[in-house]
Amino acid sequence: MPSETPQAEVGPTGCPHRSGPHSAKGSLEKGSPEDKEAKEPLWIRPDAPSRCTWQLGRPASESPHHHTAPAKSPKILPDILKKIGDTPMVRINKIGKKFGLKCELLAKCEFFNAGGSVKDRISLRMIEDAERDGTLKPGDTIIEPTSGNTGIGLALAAAVRGYRCIIVMPEKMSSEKVDVLRALGAEIVRTPTNARFDSPESHVGVAWRLKNEIPNSHILDQYRNASNPLAHYDTTADEILQQCDGKLDMLVASVGTGGTITGIARKLKEKCPGCRIIGVDPEGSILAEPEELNQTEQTTYEVEGIGYDFIPTVLDRTVVDKWFKSNDEEAFTFARMLIAQEGLLCGGSAGSTVAVAVKAAQELQEGQRCVVILPDSVRNYMTKFLSDRWMLQKGFLKEEDLTEKKPWWWHLRVQELGLSAPLTVLPTITCGHTIEILREKGFDQAPVVDEAGVILGMVTLGNMLSSLLAGKVQPSDQVGKVIYKQFKQIRLTDTLGRLSHILEMDHFALVV
């Protein structure tokens, strides 16, 4: 994948999101292997301009796509893939009243899908469409860049269908997702969380590099694949309309690839034109409109599966009536509230959605109805927002919020430890010299600072030695090549209790 991002070429006709291997024109390309080798690009942008032909009021008969309808489940399912879809609609009884809503608040519980998330729908649909058009064949390999849930859905379907599955996901995604993927037989590649989507090191860039190296491999490409919004247009939206008897006044959905909100909203605009569509985008993402909503100094966020630093091709923002931004604290607070007060075992993005819903639905009156999409299960986040310690460490809970008995030293300040200034190293000294210094002084790690004293990161003896043994660096290389740029900081005025929580999850903390 090139470091400079080429513009994806656009073909003359058809839909841009065809499933299957992508040609340089962004659509299915038939021909000899030699032709494909000559024409197939190194990668295709996940934010390529959409060429979708959908228009409100256009006859369904003019759609270029294969459409399906929700099917009634048999008493005995032939395999677990038949437990994807037909998820329950559940009334939220307490939270709406707590925040003064007059309307009825309903939750579409997508964590009841077989793999635990709304992404099971698009995973199965992308595979079925690729099999139907002859792209996927027995023994082929599926590769997908994902925040985890699409990966789980694909790995689940691949396990049943017999495909090899490789999932490329950023490091910030939970260990629970990784464990589930491994249990399903998927191979996992992790990428830096802070890598831009168009960087060769991003999950998108690495996935395309693997595709170019592995024979008979395919990126189904949830960011561009029409099967993504079509899955929701054909099934999720129809289920909502049936469950609500066609009567709903507002739908609120958090947005990642945009397939969920695009597919549902398009069908609702056709069948229930008075329904307002509300999009939820986390602070630090750029999906919301108008652009002024996205202006923030924050560039990272903890909530998973929603928000991006690019506009995915499948996201149709014209069908969203209003956007709201959400933050991590309210997302996790509301997710825990949904679990504790409503018994809905949902993930953090569901918290984002409901946090926005109780604001947006203030305009609705008694007798009206708001539906929220709860995308995934708490299963993926047992060591994250479900953990009091994690919430404390991230600053989303305060010590006084917890009532468990603490040891005698818990409320003492870090400054009472009488710490001395640490050994520091410059980023320009060599790895070999740094190892000598650390061994001589008896230290395992040291902060790396520039000549102005600005902290650049941390270097550890173990990481340097393993990097040297693996051949990633040489003793003569500058130590700046092996620094940890993500590390926890703590102030002298913070409590030892807070430091204790940090050290339970990290090997060190830097006192500043």
Rank of each mutant, 00 (worst) to 15 (best):
T260Q: 00
N194D: 13
K75R: 06
L77D: 06
R18V: 13
Q55T: 10
I188E: 00
R132E: 10
P138H: 09
A195I: 08
A231G: 07
H67M: 05
R45M: 09
S32T: 06
S199V: 02
E110W: 01
D86K: 10
P2N: 11
W208M: 08
G148H: 00
V252D: 11
H65F: 03
V168K: 02
G162P: 13
I214K: 02
E37I: 09
I95F: 09
Y163K: 03
P192A: 04
E110G: 00
P33I: 10
R196T: 10
N93R: 05
P229S: 05
H218V: 13
G151I: 00
A48Q: 10
V189F: 03
G205Y: 08
K137W: 07
V118L: 06
T260E: 00
L184Y: 07
R161L: 04
R161V: 08
V204R: 03
Q242R: 11
T135S: 04
H232D: 00
T260L: 02
D35S: 09
K247M: 15
P70S: 13
E110N: 02
H17M: 05
G115L: 07
E104F: 02
H17V: 14
D140V: 09
A253H: 07
E128T: 08
H232F: 00
P64C: 01
C275Q: 07
K102T: 10
E239V: 00
T13V: 09
S123I: 07
D35P: 10
E270C: 02
A8V: 14
D140Q: 06
R132I: 07
E201P: 09
G246P: 09
S50F: 02
P170R: 01
R164D: 04
A69Q: 10
P2C: 10
S202T: 07
A186V: 06
Y233L: 02
M169Q: 02
S3A: 11
K137M: 08
H67C: 09
Q222Y: 00
E213Q: 15
S32P: 10
R164W: 06
G85T: 01
H65M: 13
P46A: 04
D79R: 10
P46G: 00
P78T: 12
V252P: 09
A71T: 15
P88W: 04
T257D: 00
P46S: 02
E187K: 12
T68S: 13
D245I: 08
P46Y: 00
P49G: 03
D198P: 07
S199D: 13
S50Q: 06
L241V: 14
P229F: 02
G151Y: 00
T193A: 11
R58M: 10
E201M: 03
P2H: 12
P145K: 00
V90R: 01
I84A: 09
T53Y: 08
G151S: 03
G115R: 08
F112G: 02
S3W: 04
W43V: 13
N216Q: 08
C15N: 03
N93G: 04
F112S: 02
H203Y: 08
F197K: 06
S73R: 12
S27T: 15
L181W: 01
P70Y: 04
S19R: 07
G139R: 14
I92S: 05
N216E: 09
K172D: 02
F99S: 12
E40R: 06
D140F: 09
G258Q: 01
H22C: 14
P215S: 05
V168S: 02
D47S: 07
V180Y: 04
G100W: 08
K97D: 15
D129Y: 07
G263E: 02
V255K: 03
L220W: 03
W208S: 04
N212G: 14
P16G: 09
T141S: 11
H67L: 11
K98F: 05
I127V: 12
T235A: 13
K30M: 10
A158C: 02
G26D: 06
L184S: 06
A48P: 10
G256T: 00
A253D: 09
A24P: 12
V204T: 12
R125E: 09
T235G: 13
L101V: 06
E144K: 04
P74W: 03
P12W: 08
D234C: 01
